[in-house]
Design a protein around this nucleic acid. Sequence first.
DNA 1: GTCTATAGGAAGATAGAC
DNA 2: GTCTATCTTCCTATAGAC
Lengths: 198, 198
Amino acid sequence: MARLPSAERRRQLTEAAIRAMARDGVPRTTTRSIAAEAGVSLSVFHYCFDSKQQLIESVITTITGHYVSVVKEAIRPRATLEETVRAGFQAYFDHVRAHPDEHMLTYELTQYALRQPGFEHLARRQYELYAEAYTELIDQLRQSMGLRLHVPVPVLARYLAAMTDGLTLNYLVLGDDPAWAGSLDTVTAHVAGLVREN
Amino acid sequence: MARLPSAERRRQLTEAAIRAMARDGVPRTTTRSIAAEAGVSLSVFHYCFDSKQQLIESVITTITGHYVSVVKEAIRPRATLEETVRAGFQAYFDHVRAHPDEHMLTYELTQYALRQPGFEHLARRQYELYAEAYTELIDQLRQSMGLRLHVPVPVLARYLAAMTDGLTLNYLVLGDDPAWAGSLDTVTAHVAGLVREN
DNA sequence: GTCTATAGGAAGATAGAC
DNA sequence: GTCTATCTTCCTATAGAC
């Protein structure tokens, strides 16, 4: 087995942990299974991380970064406001559909962090980053399309983050049926109304 | 220790499990801690339930029933539509504020069920019941206030359930700050708009 | 029906050879 | 840096006396 700098090993182990946790769930993912997924022995794990908790901290910050990127890339300015909002949600939900386990994992990690004493700040940070991602998107749309908002930006950002979160979890549990497309239409129309210039 | 019918013992153990899981989280709640919480010995547990999974199944169906009751009781017809919607959300979120751990538990149980082979139907049933609760509420409001809906009932019900879910989780993680009250105002206005007669 | 005692296994973490 | 082997702890589940 190659000898790598420990920063690189940590990265490898973190990515392996994300794959294992997305596949098996957080509680069932053991240090052994993570080491196996990364193709290293258990001792390498404990050489790179002091504890399982330290690894999970790394997993949470890493996956939150991934997720925020998805949201940020989903919404890009298009011809009309409706089109922009609709295409943005569509792109985001296409990602959820393609990687349901990874999105599921973000919820599990939130709950792990909230239950683990001393980790609560990681859960808060996760949700603050979601809201910040929306804040950036809104500002971006405001500049490119000259919107007049009906509600303050922080309120809208937090509301959109919560709505995205709820619809995502709902999809992960129930999947899509006829009512699902309707939900997306409803939220699209609502968001367009909230940010419409008038 | 008194000798009770096993149905009653099962109920006691289920309630004890809900308390223990709300306090410690699902993965940390052991059969031992549940038995201790119920004030019985470990063997009594295995006398009433074949396995921990069987108990968790009982926990999920029980707590979903509790939760649905909360949603159903939250919204009662009041003078105006806005008042009804606002007071309903307020009552619901007052319950969340008063029992955050119990609501947190509903999310943990959903994920437990989705990860446990053969338990997926319990998670689906949980979310179907949420939507059904909203369906009943909408029908009730329609009759008492003569509403004309802008979207079909199943779509609206699922959308409201997802939104409630997202806002609840968002509150459980971030708590309330200035933006929180704004989110509630926004959702209230939106819902009132969706069901307004016009 | 209820108890004590224990089987049997899997987890996180460590020791020490190479 | 990486490995095998092991320590310690805690879990679910069962056996069998009362």
